[in-house]
């Protein structure tokens, strides 16, 4: 589904790989190895070379905003451009279901962004991305600020996206999560990306 050909960016060596629908790929590596850079390049947020195809359509043939709505990047630190939560959501009805499942009350739309906890920000940013129903989600440490129980809830919701034929590429520093949630694994060392074989699992 997602076909990456010779993608390179600043200090990322050219890399090619494909991700199928329903697959989740864990990206691991030391801090500063280039994990976020890889996700940002996939979303075309940093100048990069190479080509990516999504269901056979070339990224270069699509306007960047259209590409990013289908291949959506959720950074580790979420950004907010209005004072309250609500204006960050175009479709509040679509968000409602996700909010509930991630243990956020519906009235959180009225909350001021400045008063959100790290965990609330993170979950809301995730909901904001899922509302777009993207084909590929690029998640940079999606659960780093969450407790174990909430982490599993998030993974549950994400898992549904996968069965709905989306693909997820996520960065995680948690080896257990990478093993648990990632069906495949890409390891980055000094800007060089390699696929690490994972043991076959019953899922």
């Amino acid at each position: 589904m997602l076909q990456v050909e010779n993608l390179s960016c600043r200090n990322l060596a050219p890399v090619s790989f494909t991700v199928d629908a329903g697959e989740s790929v864990a990206v691991t590596g030391a801090s500063g190895a280039g994990k976020s850079l890889l996700l940002r390049s996939l979303a075309d947020l940093d100048p990069n070379d190479g080509e990516i195809f999504l269901d056979g359509r070339a990224r270069s043939a699509m306007p960047a905003p259209a590409w990013r709505r289908r291949v959506v990047y959720v950074p580790a630190e979420s950004g907010w451009w209005a004072d309250h939560v609500g204006p960050h959501f175009d479709d509040r009805d679509a968000a409602a279901g996700f909010l509930h499942r991630l243990q956020l009350p519906a009235e959180c739309m009225e909350w001021p962004v400045a008063r959100l906890s790290t965990g609330e920000r993170q979950r809301l940013a995730l909901v904001r991305a899922m509302v777009l129903a993207p084909t590929v989600m690029l998640l940079d440490e999606p659960t780093s600020g969450l407790d174990h129980e909430t982490t599993l809830r998030v993974e549950g919701v994400l898992h549904e996206r996968l069965t709905g034929a989306a693909a997820i590429i996520f960065v995680s520093h948690d080896k257990a999560q990478a093993d648990r949630f990632g069906r495949r694994r890409l390891h980055i060392e000094d800007g060089v990306i390699e696929e690490v074989p994972t043991e076959p699992r019953r899922s």
């Binding site: 905003p65 991305a129 777009l132």
Partner: peptide, 15 residues
């Protein structure tokens, strides 16, 4: 100063 907020909008498909 507001790089993160601007890029958040771009990442969600804003022009």
């Amino acid at each position: 100063a507001e790089r993160i907020a601007i890029e958040a909008r771009l990442a969600l498909g804003a022009d």
